[in-house]
Simulated assay, not measured.
Amino acid sequence: MKHCLVVDDSSVIRKVARRILEDMDFSISEAEDGQQALDACRESMPDAILLDWNMPVMDGLEFLHKLREEEGGEKPLVVFCTTENDVSHIAKAVRAGANEYIMKPFDRDIIEAKFQEVGLI
């Protein structure tokens, strides 16, 4: 079973993502901010990360930069999931190492399509 780390400061978003991803046969862990996510990755590197941009403590972009510097940090497929929709944000995410980008609100069809595009399902 593949493992996905859901990183978002909103408990509602994490809960919705968890339900969708568990239905897609992923095991799930959660983090409320980038620092918690980095700590979780250092403990056990996930196969995929669904990542919010705007969070307290450490935002998604800073987390992604730090993740990619970690041993094994190049392996997880990272899908940014955010309300930030301008081209400059998308370009920054891709340059930092994001594999895909989806907008909130999302549903199962959107997550499933993006995870298929990056080869997770």
Rank of each mutant, 00 (worst) to 15 (best):
M1R: 12
M1C: 10
K2D: 11
V7I: 07
D9G: 02
D9W: 01
S11Q: 10
S11N: 04
I13W: 00
I13Y: 06
A17D: 05
R19M: 15
I20Y: 02
E22F: 02
D23E: 14
D23Q: 14
M24G: 09
D25W: 02
D25Y: 05
F26C: 10
S27V: 05
I28K: 01
S29V: 06
A31C: 12
A31L: 09
E32D: 10
G34L: 12
G34I: 09
G34M: 05
Q35V: 10
Q35M: 15
A37N: 01
L38H: 03
D39Y: 02
A40F: 00
E43G: 09
M45R: 02
P46H: 09
A48T: 05
A48D: 05
I49S: 09
L50G: 03
W53M: 15
N54H: 11
M58I: 13
D59T: 03
G60A: 09
G60F: 07
G60E: 09
F63S: 08
H65Y: 14
L67R: 01
L67G: 02
R68E: 07
E70R: 04
E74A: 13
P76K: 08
V79T: 13
C81D: 06
T82A: 12
E84R: 01
N85V: 09
H89E: 08
H89P: 02
I90S: 11
A91L: 15
A91S: 13
V94W: 01
V94M: 15
V94N: 06
A96N: 05
G97L: 03
G97Y: 04
G97R: 00
G97N: 09
N99G: 13
E100C: 07
Y101W: 07
I102D: 06
M103S: 15
M103Y: 08
K104Y: 04
K104W: 06
K104D: 08
P105Y: 08
F106Y: 01
R108D: 10
R108V: 14
D109S: 10
F115E: 09
Q116M: 10
V118I: 15
L120D: 02
L120P: 03
L120Y: 01
I121P: 05
I121N: 11
